[in-house]
Each structure stands twice: as structure tokens, then as C-alpha cells.
Amino acid sequence: AEKTGIVNVSSSLNVREGASTSSKVIGSLSGNTKVTIVGEEGAFYKIEYKGSHSYVAKEYIKDIKDE
């Protein structure tokens, strides 16, 4: 089941290729951006990003809701 969340950062949140802080950064999301969460892996959520799937750190996503 998909969930949505809100990016909870003051500046921007790195979007990564994989579920690791050493993964390549492929983009960023600004605070209060709504994201669609399709899964989770460790400390990361797998999200829909620009037509494919990428990862963001869970600690920076708030207001998780089931869609």
C-alpha cells in the first residue's frame, strides 16, 4: 500500500539512488514537498521521484499517511 509523507527540512533533502548515505545523490526535495512512499529499506523510504524510484532518509519525512 502506498503512503504519502511531507519533507520536513528547512532547506533541502537529498534524494539518493540507493538506501544508503553513501549512495549517489540524484536530486533534492525542498521542505513541505509531498512525497509518495512505495516502500522502506532500513533507515530510508523508497519514494516515487521523476518517474522512477529513489530513496530519502526516514528521519526527514513527517505526517505519514496511508493513501
Score class of each variant (00 low, 15 high):
residue 35 V to W: 02
residue 10 S to R: 07
residue 29 L to R: 00
residue 18 G to A: 13
residue 18 G to F: 14
residue 45 Y to S: 01
residue 19 A to N: 04
residue 17 E to H: 05
residue 8 N to D: 10
residue 66 D to I: 14
residue 53 H to V: 12
residue 39 G to D: 07
residue 43 A to M: 11
residue 66 D to K: 08
residue 27 G to F: 03
residue 16 R to K: 06
residue 44 F to M: 04
residue 39 G to Y: 03
residue 53 H to N: 06
residue 5 G to W: 07
residue 53 H to R: 05
residue 32 N to A: 08
residue 63 D to V: 15
residue 36 T to C: 11
residue 54 S to T: 05
residue 47 I to T: 01
residue 50 K to W: 07
residue 51 G to E: 06
residue 33 T to F: 06
residue 13 L to F: 03
residue 8 N to C: 15
residue 42 G to I: 02
residue 46 K to N: 02
residue 57 A to K: 11
residue 37 I to F: 00
residue 28 S to N: 10
residue 21 T to K: 11
residue 65 K to C: 12
residue 66 D to N: 12
residue 41 E to A: 08
residue 40 E to W: 05
residue 44 F to E: 00
residue 6 I to H: 05
residue 55 Y to G: 00
residue 30 S to T: 12
residue 22 S to Q: 11
residue 40 E to L: 06
residue 26 I to S: 04
residue 13 L to P: 08
residue 22 S to V: 09
residue 5 G to S: 04
residue 20 S to Y: 08
residue 23 S to N: 04
residue 59 E to R: 10
residue 44 F to L: 02
residue 35 V to G: 00
residue 58 K to M: 08
residue 57 A to T: 06
residue 53 H to K: 05
residue 9 V to K: 09
residue 37 I to E: 00
residue 53 H to E: 07
residue 57 A to C: 14
residue 56 V to K: 00
residue 5 G to I: 05
residue 39 G to Q: 04
residue 58 K to Q: 05
residue 8 N to T: 13
residue 50 K to M: 14
residue 38 V to C: 07
residue 1 A to C: 15
residue 50 K to T: 04
residue 35 V to C: 04
residue 35 V to N: 00
residue 64 I to C: 10
residue 61 I to R: 00
residue 1 A to Q: 13
residue 27 G to W: 02
residue 58 K to L: 03
residue 58 K to I: 06
residue 1 A to S: 13
residue 33 T to E: 11
residue 46 K to C: 11
residue 11 S to P: 10
residue 39 G to P: 00
residue 42 G to T: 03
residue 52 S to K: 13
residue 54 S to G: 15
residue 67 E to N: 13
residue 48 E to M: 14
residue 27 G to Q: 02
residue 9 V to Y: 07
residue 24 K to L: 09
residue 67 E to Y: 10
residue 67 E to R: 04
residue 26 I to R: 03
residue 45 Y to I: 03
residue 43 A to G: 13
residue 16 R to H: 15
residue 28 S to D: 06
residue 56 V to C: 04
residue 28 S to P: 03
residue 10 S to L: 13
residue 59 E to G: 07
residue 52 S to I: 11
residue 32 N to G: 15
residue 5 G to N: 03
residue 16 R to W: 15
residue 6 I to P: 02
residue 21 T to V: 12
residue 30 S to E: 14
residue 62 K to W: 09
residue 38 V to Y: 07
residue 49 Y to V: 02
residue 64 I to Q: 06
residue 26 I to P: 02
residue 39 G to N: 05
residue 59 E to T: 07
residue 65 K to F: 10
residue 67 E to T: 13
residue 36 T to K: 13
residue 53 H to P: 07
residue 61 I to V: 08
residue 21 T to F: 15
residue 38 V to R: 05
residue 46 K to D: 02
residue 57 A to E: 15
residue 28 S to K: 13
residue 46 K to F: 04
residue 33 T to G: 04
residue 32 N to H: 09
residue 31 G to W: 10
residue 2 E to L: 15
residue 29 L to W: 01
residue 67 E to V: 14
residue 11 S to K: 09
residue 6 I to Q: 05
residue 29 L to I: 11
residue 31 G to L: 09
residue 65 K to P: 10
residue 28 S to A: 11
residue 60 Y to S: 09
residue 47 I to C: 02
residue 12 S to W: 13
residue 12 S to T: 14
residue 48 E to I: 15
residue 64 I to D: 08
residue 44 F to R: 00
residue 39 G to K: 03
residue 61 I to A: 01
residue 65 K to G: 11
residue 20 S to L: 06
residue 26 I to Q: 04
residue 2 E to H: 15
residue 52 S to G: 15
residue 2 E to I: 15
residue 57 A to S: 10
residue 41 E to P: 00
residue 51 G to K: 05
